[in-house]
Design a protein around this nucleic acid. Structure first.
Length: 570
DNA sequence: ATTTCGAGCGCG
DNA sequence: AAAGCGCGCTCGAAAT
């Protein structure tokens, strides 16, 4: 037994439960962990609930033995700080089982990821404990069978340790977050936990029949294209999904290409119909394998809905990542998005920020022209067009605006003149000389003076870190990384804004029938009772504006709101 | 036989 | 003067 040998109390009786309640009442904070029989909160069961209190007591409740679950549900219905590791996992199980858990939270995993953002791949509990406390943690029992009638002492001991280790971890992380000025962004992440958990539990409904029809259509088309292409190339055995085989076939056909990538093929497609067909084939194949036939596999057997995994700090910039399935890459073409629906009697409120990243750029750089344009409700792409075409904004044509829009983004984030030249050709068939590309580039930056200064400043920076407006930090492994340095605070601040918006919205919707069912970078989907759509739409819009205004002080925030039976609504 | 890797491509 | 950024999924090919 080490110096911290904790007092371990197994809760079996009403008397022991009472002791637990009194201890909780007197505690400053609680460290919590659960052991479950699996990973699915709708199917698997919580076996153990471990509570390590700030006084140093560890309580263990075997939920298979302790029958009066009802009396436990309000255990955390107080304002005690709850300390966890990967809180989302435990919170999903606790909420799915009726526990009232609303925080405040301190997630040691998120805290560690904030500290290490940009440097570390993941950070399991073992790694974090070793890194911060120099303690070797044994995790063998984690994947063992937690459904046996009686639990071995080894298991009990392991479970107790998992909870008690959170206490020194919390203290170490808390200090480092404060010392490294990351307490504010940590607070944001911790507040975002509950909305994130709810989104995962809510899930979203899929129209399987419609999806099936689309899938059959796609499969037919893929077959047809495959036949036509291999026939034309005189390569019946060629696997069109193999870049190597396709390249060989194209070469024998007389098209000399070094790569079969889209960027290589697209400029040649107008001369070779077979290349246009190949691009079409790839698009349909991707559509079918990645979405049409894959999505139904993720429908939950119990809820009948999709419950994608959201990772709060999945991206180094602070954005969410999403998987199983990745809702963030569902094709925009409405046919697919139309398959994401609201159940009978409900509708979807779909709200997205308008040009949020460019607004963040305006705020960060303080570029007068950009800020003024947004303040006056002017169109930024037309403004850009007016610079590069050297004409008054009122005289800019639709075509000029479209072209400006295409490159606004690229140049803002450090696209090279070389790429500008290529990009215009590939995506707009816009033949551009070196001289024209340079002139385009120069006029753009002459128009946006502070943007130019920002680029110069970032280019010269030797420091190995970058910050967003919430104080979120990304560490860079070395100097350089010019374009990443430009992008990170912008993408990251947009993520700050989204998370703040979710927190505000979640609070306002709490207790209502409306449910947040998805979020995609700058977009929020809410499932709402039909009769309440108009009022809830206002709440969503207002919450997102408030979220934006928390960080953008000189640039207005705009939100577009749509209401429909499905996600494909225009 | 099984795993890793890279190409390619969907999204914001 | 051959990198605009950030992801996850699927496939074939290479590596084990």
């Amino acid at each position: 037994m080490g110096p911290h040998s904790p007092v371990l109390i197994q809760v079996f009786t009403a008397k022991e439960l009472n002791t637990l309640k009194i201890t909780i009442f007197q505690a400053k904070f609680l460290c919590i962990d659960t052991e479950t029989t699996g990973l699915d909160p709708f199917i698997d069961k919580i076996r153990l609930l471990q509570i390590h209190t700030s006084q140093g007591f560890t309580f263990i409740i075997d939920l298979f033995k302790f029958e009066e679950t009802e009396s436990l549900l309000s255990l955390f219905e107080n304002d005690k700080l709850l300390v966890l590791f990967n809180a989302k996992f435990d919170l999903k199980f606790l909420k799915a089982n009726g526990f009232k858990v609303s925080g405040p939270f301190f997630d040691t995993m998120l805290a560690y990821q904030l500290l290490k953002a940009g440097t570390y791949p993941k950070g399991s509990l073992q790694e974090v404990c070793f890194d911060l406390l120099e303690i070797e943690l044994d995790k063998d029992e984690q994947v063992s069978d937690w459904s046996t009638p009686d639990l071995t002492w080894s298991k009990i001991d392991y479970a107790a340790k998992d909870a008690s280790i959170l206490l020194p971890l919390y203290k170490a992380l808390r200090k480092r977050l404060i010392d490294e000025n990351l307490a504010r962004v940590a607070q944001l992440e911790f507040e975002t936990l509950e909305p994130t958990v709810e989104i995962e539990l809510n899930g979203i409904l899929l129209d399987s029949e419609k999806l099936k029809k689309l899938q059959i259509e796609a499969e037919n088309q893929i077959e047809k294209l495959k036949e036509e292409i291999t026939l034309e190339l005189k390569a019946p055995e060629c696997n069109l999904n193999s870049p190597i085989q396709v390249r060989k076939a194209l070469n024998s056909y007389g098209i000399e290409v070094k790569s079969t990538s889209k960027d290589t093929i697209k400029p040649l497609a107008s001369n070779y119909p077979v290349l246009a067909k190949l691009l079409k084939y790839r698009k349909e194949f991707k559509l079918n394998t990645s979405f049409l036939s894959a999505l139904p596999e993720h429908i939950h057997q119990k809820t009948g809905r999709l419950h994608p995994d959201l990772w709060q700090l999945g991206a180094v910039t602070g954005r969410y990542s999403c998987s199983n399935p990745n809702l963030q890459q569902i094709p925009r073409e409405s046919a697919v998005r139309e398959c994401f629906i609201a159940p009978p009697g409900k509708k979807l409120v779909i709200a997205d920020f308008s040009q949020i990243e460019l607004r963040v750029v305006a705020e960060l750089t303080g570029d007068e022209k950009m800020v003024n344009a947004f303040q006056d409700g002017e169109d930024l792409h037309s403004l850009t067009a007016s610079f590069v075409c050297q004409k008054d904004i009122s005289l800019v044509t639709t075509e000029e605006r479209t072209k400006a829009k295409a490159i606004n983004f690229g140049l803002t984030f450090g696209m090279s003149v070389f790429s500008l030249k290529n990009y215009s050709l590939i995506n707009y068939g816009l033949e551009m000389s070196w001289w024209q590309a340079w002139r385009f580039h120069d006029r753009f930056f002459d128009g946006y003076k502070r943007l130019k200064e920002w680029h110069q400043a970032e280019k010269e920076k030797m420091v190995s870190e970058s910050f967003t407006l919430s104080g979120r930090r990304r560490l860079f492994p070395e100097e350089g990384w010019f374009t990443a340095r430009l992008n990170t605070p912008v993408q990251g601040t947009a993520a700050d804004i989204m998370k703040k918006s979710l927190v505000i919205l979640f609070k306002r919707l709490k207790g209502s029938n409306s449910k947040i069912v998805a979020t995609v970078h700058d977009e929020i989907l809410v499932e709402v009772n039909e009769s309440e759509t108009e009022s809830v739409a206002k709440v969503v819009e207002n919450s997102m504006k408030k979220g934006g205004e928390a960080y953008l002080k000189s640039v207005p925030v705009e939100v577009d709101v749509k209401i429909g039976r499905h996600w494909g609504i225009k």
